[in-house]
Amino acid sequence: MTNHALFHTLHQLSRQLTNQLNEALKPFGLFSAQWSVLYVLHIKGSLTQKELSEYLFVEAPPMTRTIQRLVKQGYVKQIPGKDKREKFIQLTEEAVKEFPKWENAVTQCNQALLGNFPETSQQQLLNLQSVWLKQLL
């Protein structure tokens, strides 16, 4: 397999997984990019927009748009930091209340996608991704 084929396949897989997740989240008016932000805030608590961007490897402009959408939906709020430019992003009470529904939809989507993918193969893939990601950072 050439490097091109490997990366092309990874890109195709990533797009397909994103599309599947978008379908699962559609009934809630959410997209995968929004879910990523909500999930990270749920796990890590309040973060600055810069920290979110860096953690999720997302450029500032698309992160700003995603956060603005989530603010409009009432799922996150922005809290001014010490510096005028710094804003902390955190989940609203509404998001905390709705989160289990979103998480359930994502879990069902993930389980359907994994289907007949053996647990040992899942663990191997996770290990490979972790090693590769560490090398990139």
Rank of each mutant, 00 (worst) to 15 (best):
F31A: 00
Q90R: 15
L70P: 07
A33R: 12
I43E: 14
F57A: 13
T9I: 09
T9A: 11
K84H: 09
I89P: 02
L38Y: 08
L30F: 01
V76S: 05
E54S: 10
G45C: 08
L10T: 00
I67D: 03
V37W: 13
Q49S: 03
W35P: 00
L91Y: 15
M1W: 02
K50T: 10
A33I: 06
P80K: 12
K44Q: 14
T66I: 10
L38A: 08
V71Q: 12
L30Y: 01
L56V: 05
V40R: 15
Q34I: 04
L52T: 05
P80F: 11
L56A: 05
F28R: 04
L25G: 00
Q34H: 11
F99N: 06
L6F: 06
V76I: 07
T9D: 12
Y39C: 11
A60H: 12
E23P: 00
H42A: 13
P61D: 04
H4A: 03
K44A: 10
F31C: 01
S53D: 08
G45I: 06
E54A: 10
G45S: 06
M63L: 11
N3W: 05
T2E: 01
A5P: 02
V58W: 07
S32M: 05
L10I: 03
E98T: 05
E51A: 14
R69G: 08
R65S: 09
I89S: 02
F28D: 04
E86A: 13
R85L: 07
T48K: 10
K72R: 14
V96N: 09
K97A: 12
H11P: 00
V96M: 14
R65Y: 09
F99K: 04
S36V: 03
L47I: 10
L21V: 00
Q49C: 03
Q90F: 12
L47D: 10
L30P: 01
K82S: 14
W35E: 02
E51P: 10
V71S: 09
E93W: 11
K84Q: 10
F88Q: 09
G74P: 03
S53V: 04
F99I: 01
P61W: 07
G29V: 01
H11T: 06
K26S: 00
Q12S: 13
Y39G: 08
L41Y: 14
Y55E: 07
I79D: 10
Q20V: 04
T48L: 04
S53P: 08
Y55F: 12
L6W: 08
M63V: 03
E51R: 13
S14Y: 07
I43G: 08
Q78W: 04
E94Q: 09
I67R: 00
K26A: 04
I43H: 13
L47W: 12
P80V: 08
